[in-house]
Design a protein around this nucleic acid. Sequence first.
RNA 1: GCCGAGGUGGCGGAAUGGUAGACGCGAGGGACUUAAAAUCCCUUAUCCACUAUCGGAUGUGUGGGUUCAAUUCCCACCCUCGGCACCA
Length: 838
Amino acid sequence: MLEPYDPSKAEATWQKKWEEAGVFKTDLQKAKNPFYSLVMFPYPSGDKLHIGHWYNYAPADSIARFKKMQGYDVFSPMGFDAFGLPAENYAIKTGVHPAESTKKNVETMITQLKKIGCMYDWDKTVNTTDPSYYRFTQWLFLEMFKHKLAYKKKGNVNFCPSCQTVLANEQVKEGRCERCDTEVIQKPLEQWYWSITRYSQKLLDGLAEIDWPEKTKYMQQEWIGRSEGAEIDFDLVGLNEKLTIFTTRQDTIFGATFIVVAPEHPLVKKITTKEKQKDISAFLGRVLHKTELQRKTDVSFFDGEDTGACAINPVTGDKMPIYVAEYVLMSYGKGAIMAVPSHDERDFDFAERREDLRPLIKPVIRPDKHVANFNSYIHRGFAVVLRDGGDLDAAFKRRDEDDYQLVLQGKKCWRGPGQIINSDFLNGLDVEQAKKKMVQWLEKNKKGKAIINYRLRDWLVSRQRYWGAPIPIVYDPKGQPHPVPEEHLPWLLPTDVEFKPTGESPLRHSKEFKSRTEKIFGKGWTPEYDTMDTFVCSSFYYLRYLAEGGKSLVDSSIEKKWMPVSLYIGGPEHACMHLIYARFVMMALKDFGYVSHSEPFRKLVHQGLITNKGAKMSKSKGNVVSPDAFVKEHGSDVFRMYLMFMGPFEAGGDWSDLGINGVVRFVKRMHRAITEKSDKKVSADKPAITAALHKTIKKVGEDIEGLRFNTAISALMEFLNLIEKEEALSLDLGKTVALLLAPLAPHLAEELWSVLGGKGFAIEQSWPKYDPALIVESTMTVVIQVNGKVRGDIVVSKDATKDDILSLAKANENVKKYIEAGIKKEIYVPGKLVSLVV
RNA sequence: GCCGAGGUGGCGGAAUGGUAGACGCGAGGGACUUAAAAUCCCUUAUCCACUAUCGGAUGUGUGGGUUCAAUUCCCACCCUCGGCACCA
């Protein structure tokens, strides 16, 4: 009897052998059949690697190994996204410099990562805090500046009072800081932005050509928020001034009865009449100080004020009072709308709650319980819902039918198959026709134009923090910004600073930084004290892996060959942050001429989230589970397979180690079965065993390809259950099983491969091929149903005819009882079942 | 509120129109052992029947429908989880 398999000993041995032989080093130049396997690189926190990292990296490695065995030149790099707040906060608490704690954390994580036994090519690792890396973060900033995609602007920005820094729009979740969950406030500050909005349409169009989860694409699409509409100019009564609004429903303009502008609208102060000034400033006092979150959660449709000013409806010539209300946002469109209370729910809500606006809505139709309240009212300009253009009552009755609802631009609109009414030259048209015609009218009369509006905002990239890449900008004594010339890159992060979060950039307190700037540029020159958002660092790292630390961003022939990334795996929380920034940066780099592709990630997959008792694991909750103890006790193969066996990769789930014994047993039993039974004296296996083997090859290969690791593993378990019953097995079978295990349990696979006398490494062999002819078994089981209920089954030869099978089915003892009444109908599904109806 | 995904044994899950519960955990029983661990064998959706392990009924959130046949397709509802949320 052999010694039982000892993973800890075997795994260390094989990891060392792989490293010595350099099997995972990829020659990027010579590779002919590239497969770029990428996982989102980790932040080297003091928490070390947790179970979530393993849940992401182990399956990604299984795919990479599988692709290697299929003959691809696989490149699988690993690096560290090491700039960022936790290291800096740790420094504030303990006085340990972020560079020091980061270095230590990176070392610990590398040790942990090496124990997974992934096929990482460590020669090509990156660390975003390394000056040789962040010189390219800075270079990217300079390129953006050069191409006028980086600019400085003063305006209201999101500010996190706890992190003491500004945040990009994408980093505010429900009015709270994405990182620390503190309520975000608005501050007027001058900050650096990147013009991601110029790529709105390209970012939208590109989604069509990438293989990403539909949900993620949809989220990006919503985040970009394209809508087609018109800008309409309204003349103001008694003022030589016009007010521009944005609408997507220019066809309803005949129903527009008042105007609403956002509290921050620049015209508010100018147009407010003397009598109304008191009310307006009281209103602004109530509203303007509100935080983003308060604005979003307690919008009051009661709150709003009349400015006393009036605009002229360009089509009807009617006077329209101008109101200020917080339900109109300055950050979207023009910060001003035309209100159509008979048609828009919000406009209706606002008008209905205000005495002075109520006359502008005329109730016409009887209340109907099936009809939303606001639709029970109608104004002279009600622009939709009529089939025949006459009978309003009939139109509303028709709401019980299916034909009145149509989804337009993702929204439900009231619209019959019929026409616009009460709208002069738009009468009789349907909504889409009316929109077009209205735009023509606006353009002809110089009252407006068609426009496409996007919800996406420019990317705010400056941060008032220390631990980031310094923005490579200096100011002359007049305060004008100038780029730091490329020969001064990397523009080093100074070390003589104190880590005090004051809301001011800590770099302000560095004497070295200031004197360095004056020495190079002259007296009175000052550096930019802000650093860059860490999402800038991670927006191009996939290119730096390919550059092998080289002096240019990336070699163009290598970029052409290796990009886009073949398979990118990471969490879904980055859908509207990293994943949109990286696409924007890649597109910009293509336009600058540095890369040949515009999409960085060809295929994207999100791993599921692993929770602990239903809660997300986090240091603050103290419920982070470390993989280390499990790996020490059972080995990497067991732990990674257990994570994969838990359930579907993209589903995640709640962590529990209760089932791990099943995988421990599987590894031991598999080792024993193969080493004890696989023997070169056995020349051939039983046909049933060979058939099962070939079925397993097919199933495991297809399941790994489709990222269904759980069922791939269960197929191997089923096969093991079968071969354990055999006295002896052929050597070839044992070797094939070793290869089937290689992507999932790489160490065990090497162990078996070498015990059975295989040459070289298992991971360097070709993935086994199955013979379709061998999968077909000589007999098949046909199920017999009577009236849809299973009443028995018969085993027949695979070449049995339909007639044979039907007569056998009818002769079945149990079936006989049920078919005495006589058969009405016979259905035969080849190779599967007979269904009899009596 | 809107959009999306989902709801299957004690538990993780499998099956995407054709024998529901593969595979694994756990549990119960047995073998080996002085004993325990480990290992191996049997049983394990629920209920009824049982003179051998034959058999029968029910069963995939709830209620309807389509079909010879539905976890799978259609309609309505309930619940859970994710995302978005005054976007004019």
